[in-house]
């Protein structure tokens, strides 16, 4: 059964408000973008993936998720898209 997206959003917002020593004071919503608003570089996505795998205690298919976004030529990733991916992937 998929995990609740809204609950995951709350967990992500908490994690991202102070990620890698970068404080983000604005509200983090489903529409917040990782690169444009949170200031991510691509290596931060790797570190975030590791953090989420440690948090949820399971390996997650980030490679397939990100390469699919690249194939669709998505410019940036929103917190909501990540939450939906996690909802589908978490067992």
């Amino acid at each position: 059964m998929p995990r609740d997206v809204d609950a995951i959003l709350v967990e992500l917002a908490d994690l991202l408000s102070n990620f890698q020593g970068r404080e983000y004071s604005d509200p983090i919503t489903a529409e917040t973008t990782f690169f444009g608003e949170l200031g991510f570089a691509s290596i931060d996505a790797v570190v975030l993936g590791e953090t989420l795998e440690a948090t949820y205690g399971q390996t997650l298919p980030f490679g397939a998720f990100l390469s699919e976004l690249r194939d669709r030529q998505v410019e940036d990733l929103t917190v909501g898209e990540l939450a939906e991916f996690l909802s589908r992937s978490l067992s």
């Binding site: 691509s42 290596i43 996505a45 790797v46 298919p61 490679g63 397939a64 990100l66 390469s67 690249r70």
Partner: peptide, 13 residues
Amino acid sequence: SNSSIWLLTNIVD
């Protein structure tokens, strides 16, 4: 570059 290039290509999986 950095190791994110491998994540973006899905080669590790």
